[in-house]
Structure formats: C-alpha cells, structure tokens
C-alpha cells in the first residue's frame, strides 16, 4: 500500500521548495483523511433548558506522512473536539458524523482502540496531563524499560532539544516549553505515526513557543503526520506545510503555508485574507461583526454577513469545499 511508504525525512529547504500546488493538495500519501466531519453536543443551560450546540459543521482535511498540517480557528471554535473525534474521545453527549480514515481505512471501534496511544497519539492541551509523580524520562518512556529504551530516550530528548538532566526532573520543575517537548517525546517514543497536537503554545513567550513547535516539526520530518490545532496563525505558519482555516465550525480554506505572504494575494477565501491582514505585523486591520454560531449560518455562506464581496447567492446557499488554485476553498467567488 502506498500509505506505508514513508516520506524521507525532509530538510527544511526541500520541504519549503516543494511546489505549493502539490503540497496544498496533500499529494503525500494521506495518513489521516477527514471528510465532512460534523460534531454537535447536547448542553444544559440553566436548570432544565437543553440545547444542541453544533460545534463543527463540515471539516475536510488530510494529513500525509511527514507532513505538518495546522488547523487554525479561534478559541472555542471546536478544535479540541476535532482532536477528540479523531481519537475517539468525544464525551457521551456529543454526536459526530462524517468520515475519519486512517491509512485508507475507517478509524473506528476495535481499530481505533488498538491504534490509540500507539500509532495515534494526542499531545493534549494542558501540561497537567503529565503525571506529577513521575520523572520526565519515565513519562516519556511509558511502559518501556531497559538500557535500550534508555538510549532511545536520550536520542529522542536530544533531538527535541531537551537537556539530559531533563530526564530526571519532575513535571513541576519543567518549564511550559519543556513540558510540551516531553509530551512530544512520549509520542515519538511510543512509535506514533500520527500525532494530533491540541493548542500547544497558548500564553507561551515567543521563544518557548517556537521551541515547542519545532519539536512538532522534528516529528513530522521524522516521517510522522502531525495535525496541529491552534488559534495562533503566526505560530502555525512557522512550522506548517499546509494550513486549514476554520470559520464558524467549517473549514473554509486549505492553503499551503507559503500562500500566506505579502498582503495575502495568494489566499483564496476572503476570511483567510482578513485574518492575515489583521495580524499586528500585517496591518492590524479589524473586521466588523462576529463569527456566527454554526447553526445560525446553516443555509448560507457563514462569512457572507462580513464579506465585502458577498453576492445574493452567498446568502441563499452554502458553498461546498472545492479545489481552487492548488488549494481548497469554500466560496462561490474565490479569488
């Protein structure tokens, strides 16, 4: 099967050099394919009010081996739910539909249980997932023991830039950046082929955040598929090959990281461009209005209300995701 063929660990240069066309379409053998993923859950308000909240309303993306794909969405947009859906960790009050395939086959039931924690690894949002009573080295090794495992541990730690003394530190002695790297190391040592990293850098000072992200990049360069979920588009662009942009629970654009340049001319969706231009370094331009809840925009383009180019058709129907200029976009009139 083509899936098994690992991409050769790419050097930074050759990775960036790959044609944006090829990268954006995910030409590398897809390890993870998500199609039309929708997640909703029941929630209680006060007392007896109960409502269904649509969190994800259509997410399509794929992650190839050796590739780092970032899913960018504002906080509370359901990114964590996506991670949990892939890992089969959705709470009982959540309902999901759509297809999630790993290495070409549906990822569910028995197979998911078998792969989770081994080939599939989650780098969770909180460093509180580290066991406070275990030294970092033991955390990363999991159940592996013995001198061989030790030397592998040393190799992985040094690859992710963790000093040797870090092995003997307890979680409370680790900085945020180091704790992230320990989590990533654990994924690497566990033999993960697909790693989903949920918001690995919030509140981290720039240098530390870059280190944590670099560890993920290393993982991808070693042949893993990495899905990075973040609200920080700048952080994502620093390491990602491709970027999927989430708006109102839908993936609205899938672009190569290199498309984010200049004034955003190469971007396809007006929201992505607005997001790019709102960065402090790129104009700091706000956009009136707010993201609607997915259920408020069930029958129209979710961005129509804030879009400068919206036509009547944009308010009458929901555009489908389509291939456009080497990427994908959910828009009737893409640029």
């Amino acid at each position: 099967m083509a899936i098994g063929a690992k991409r050769v660990p790419a050097q930074e240069a050759s990775r960036r050099g790959a044609s944006s066309e090829e990268a954006a379409l995910g030409a590398a053998a897809p390890l993870l394919e998500i199609e039309g993923l929708r997640v909703s859950f029941l929630q209680y308000g006060r007392g007896l009010q109960r409502r269904t909240v649509q969190a994800l309303a259509g997410v399509d993306l794929s992650v190839g081996a050796g590739e780092l794909v970032a899913l960018v969405g504002s906080s509370g947009s359901g990114k964590s739910l996506l991670a949990h859906a892939v890992m089969g960790l959705l709470p009982d009050n959540a309902r999901s539909s759509g297809s999630i395939r790993y290495a070409g086959e549906p990822l569910d039931g028995e197979r998911l249980l078998r792969l989770r924690g081994k080939e599939l690894a989650l780098v969770p949002q909180g460093v509180t997932y580290l066991d406070p009573l275990l030294r970092a080295g033991e955390q990363a090794l999991g159940r592996q023991r013995g001198p061989q495992a030790r030397s592998r541990l040393r190799a992985v730690f040094s690859r992710f830039g963790l000093p040797e003394r870090a092995e003997r530190l307890y979680p409370h002695q680790l900085s945020g950046g180091m704790a992230r790297k320990v989590l990533v190391s654990a994924a690497a040592l566990g033999g993960a082929r697909l790693v989903v990293a949920d918001e690995p850098t919030p509140g981290m000072e720039a240098g530390k955040a870059a280190e944590a992200l670099q560890a993920l990049r290393e993982l991808a360069d070693g042949g893993c598929g990495v899905l990075l979920l973040t609200h920080d588009i700048e952080a994502a662009l620093r390491v990602a090959d491709r970027v999927a942009v989430l708006y109102a629970g839908e993936a609205v654009e899938l672009a190569a990281a290199s498309d984010f340049a200049g004034a955003g001319e190469r971007l396809r969706h007006p929201y992505t461009r607005a997001l790019w231009q709102a960065l402090p370094a790129n104009g700091f331009r706000p956009l009136p209005g707010v993201q609607p809840a997915p259920e408020e925009a069930a029958a129209s383009c979710a961005f129509a209300a804030r879009c400068g180019q919206a036509a009547p058709e944009c308010r009458a129907a929901k555009p489908a995701m389509r291939v456009w200029r080497g990427g994908q976009v959910r828009c009737f009139k893409p640029d």
């Binding site: 949990h84 890992m87 960790l89 709470p91 009982d92 989770r116 924690g117 690894a121 989650l122 969770p124 997932y129 580290l130 066991d131 275990l134 955390q139 990363a140 999991g142 989590l183 654990a186 994924a187 566990g190 993960a192």
Partner: peptide, 13 residues
C-alpha cells in the same frame, strides 16, 4: 502517559 486522556474519558463515561 499518552493514555491518560483516554482514561479520563473512560471514567467520565
């Protein structure tokens, strides 16, 4: 350690 979220979910369940 990677199994922790899973365990958490299981107990919640």
């Amino acid at each position: 350690m990677m199994e922790r979220p899973e365990m958490k979910a299981a107990t919640q369940r």
